[in-house]
Design a protein around this nucleic acid. Structure first.
Length: 485
DNA sequence: TTTTGAGTTGTTCGA
DNA sequence: GTCGAACAACTCAAA
């Protein structure tokens, strides 16, 4: 039978790439004309999931760049990316009807609102007599394949990781060499969605730091596995070094898929056995992303509610002034402030520093973890609906397999251990740059002569500590002791 | 069903 | 300066 001349519609969501894209691969090999579409949908998700949140500002900026790359990459293969707005199921069903679609296909996203909207679309297409094809989504393993005996997601990472290691993620698919063009209706303008800031344009630091898009994601992975992977297991904790993969936002928007990362890493380990330990450590970070997504499917309210209800009565302090000081990087603790300013400027924060900054908000300032989670959600380019809330709850102690309450990071010690020369602080807190390494993580212990020599006036050019570490630690331990009763 | 063993990331104190 | 113990108790996974 000759291939249908009716078009196949590929619905893009968090899979903004051509390679290892099963839905796109299906359309390309089917031999029908292909229509690609992305829908800006801020209407149906909230109805389907009360705690659904629109993308944060930094992520919206990334999305705009990524869609532009995808448009251009698709154009190179002869296809157009349509941009639409509205409730996705209705919008795509209408498009499918208008163009007389042969099939509509997409990749699963294993989150409740996304699946519900997908089900709505399947229903709408059924009524039109148009078949739909859904492919395994953006995870190494389907959440259904790793469950405890009650059919729930695992709550402890190590057994989860062992189970995941025992599965073999499918080999990645190649990008289609060419796509058959289709007669497409009007494309829709990216500019009309106002994803990027204009007045004021605060995205300068994002542009300096990142190059979104599939080609950049592939280059980032290749460069990482070629050089930075050496010593990753240790260097990944050093914010002053360039030791991490920096793949998270690319993964978040699906410019690269976890299966591609997995297979590339295994290939690298096979060629160079000396980096096996680094590769294992790196892949386990991919495992954490996966763990949090599996958990999210079971706990869609994870960003709103304590996983451990014993925390529901926790005596959080309502201190808007302190929250704002934390957000702006003015707590007086250099490692915390450096992290918060890196976040504001670049849309990312080094992983080690995220833990320190989060622990500081929750334990030193006793501010509700949800306030920190929201701030990260709005400012991180890699804010992930699973990892972000799950890790905040881990820090707070309210999460699955959470950190023990007495694990309170000492921001001075953490700074001295992981930023030993103070270079990370110097970069993001330039007003302290003149201080020697011995003092840079605790400027309040410097003598007046030392401070003057560095041009630092505490309380003026740089704040005094917002809380004293020792006192704050005692206060946190007391508050946690109370909730345990 | 019951039991057993283990659980990302730390800090402080005292010997 | 280095080292080990205490900081608690609970939930989860798996045998």
């Amino acid at each position: 039978m000759a291939p249908s001349s009716r078009p196949c519609i590929v619905w893009f969501r968090d899979d903004l790439r051509l390679s290892d894209n099963p839905a796109l691969h299906f359309a390309a090999t089917r031999g029908t004309p292909t229509i690609c579409v992305y829908v800006f949908d801020e209407e149906s998700a909230p109805l389907r999931a009360p705690s659904w949140r629109p993308l944060g500002g930094a992520a919206r900026w990334w999305l705009a760049q990524s869609l532009r790359c995808l448009q251009s990459d698709l154009a190179g293969r002869g296809a157009t990316l349509l941009l639409r707005k509205g409730p996705a199921a209705a919008v795509i069903a209408r498009l499918a009807e208008d163009v007389g679609a042969d099939t509509v296909t997409w990749n699963d996203i294993a989150m409740q609102p996304h699946r519900r909207i997908g089900n709505d679309l399947v229903g709408a297409l059924d009524r039109l007599g148009i078949p739909s094809r859904i492919f395994p989504g953006d995870l190494l393993a389907a959440p259904e394949s790793i469950r405890n005996k009650d059919g729930r997601a695992l709550r402890v990472f190590t057994p989860f990781w062992k189970r995941l290691l025992a599965t073999a993620p499918a080999a990645p698919l190649p990008a289609p060499a060419a796509l058959l063009p289709a007669d497409v209706p009007d494309g829709g303008r990216l500019e009309d969605r106002h994803l990027e800031p204009t007045h004021p344009d605060w995205a300068g630091g994002l542009r300096e730091t990142w190059t979104p898009g599939e080609a950049s994601a592939q280059a980032m992975l290749a460069g990482f596995l070629d050089t930075r992977i050496h010593g990753y297991a240790d260097n990944r904790d050093r914010p002053d070094l360039d030791g991490t993969s920096r793949l998270s936002p690319h993964l978040g928007f699906g410019e690269i898929g976890p299966r591609q990362v997995w297979h590339a890493a295994h290939f690298a380990a096979h060629r160079r056995p000396e980096i096996a330990r680094d590769i294992d450590k790196f892949l386990s970070e991919l495992g954490w992303r996966e763990f949090c997504r599996h958990l999210l499917l079971d706990e869609p309210e994870i960003a709103a509610r304590n996983l451990q209800s014993s925390f529901d009565g926790f005596p959080w302090r309502d201190d808007q002034a302190a929250l704002r000081q934390w957000q702006s990087g003015l707590t007086g603790y250099p490692i915390v402030d450096a992290g918060m300013r890196q976040l504001w400027h670049t849309g990312t924060m080094h992983n080690r520093v995220r833990m320190v900054a989060a622990s500081f908000l929750v334990k030193h300032l006793l501010i509700d973890w949800r306030d920190g989670e929201s701030w990260f959600w709005d400012t991180l380019v890699d804010a992930d609906p699973g990892s972000n809330p799950a890790n905040w709850q881990w820090v707070a102690g309210s999460g699955a397999d959470a950190a023990p309450y007495f694990r309170i990071f000492n921001p001075i010690l953490q700074g001295e251990t992981f930023d030993p020369d103070g270079d990370y602080v110097r970069r993001w807190v330039p007003e302290l740059a003149g201080l020697p390494a011995r003092l840079i993580h605790q400027p309040w212990t410097a003598t007046p002569v030392e401070l003057a020599g560095a041009g630092v006036v505490l309380g003026k050019t740089y704040p005094e500590p917002i809380v004293a570490h020792k006192r704050a630690r005692g206060r946190a331990l007391a508050a946690y002791a109370k909730t345990r009763e």
